[in-house]
């Protein structure tokens, strides 16, 4: 499965959410086909709640982890 990294460090809400939603919308077919996983890197703590929650409402699975001084948010097909 391909991983696409999106570095959003330095951005804050709501710009991070809108950017993340744009990426998810653009790649929805590939994500649902389980050929792509999006990985957002952010320094904004609020985004670790808003982005996963929105993605889950859209039917995707998510995983959040802390990596160095930033956060890693993975968006992938539910059921993986």
């Amino acid at each position: 499965m391909e991983l696409k990294y999106i570095d959003m460090r330095g951005q804050v809400c709501p710009a991070t959410l809108i950017s993340a939603l744009r990426e998810i919308n653009s790649h929805k077919d590939a994500i649902k086909a389980e050929t792509l996983k999006l990985v957002f890197i952010t320094s904004n703590r609020d985004s670790t709640v808003t982005i996963p929650k929105s993605a889950e409402n859209m039917g995707y699975a998510t995983k959040v982890s802390e990596e160095d001084a930033s956060y890693r948010i993975e968006i992938f097909a539910a059921g993986l």
Binding site: C13, P14, L17, I18, L21, D46, V49, T50, K53, S54
Partner: peptide, 8 residues
């Protein structure tokens, strides 16, 4: 944005 639970 409010519906998405984030800041304006």
């Amino acid at each position: 944005l409010l519906l998405f639970g984030t800041l304006p």
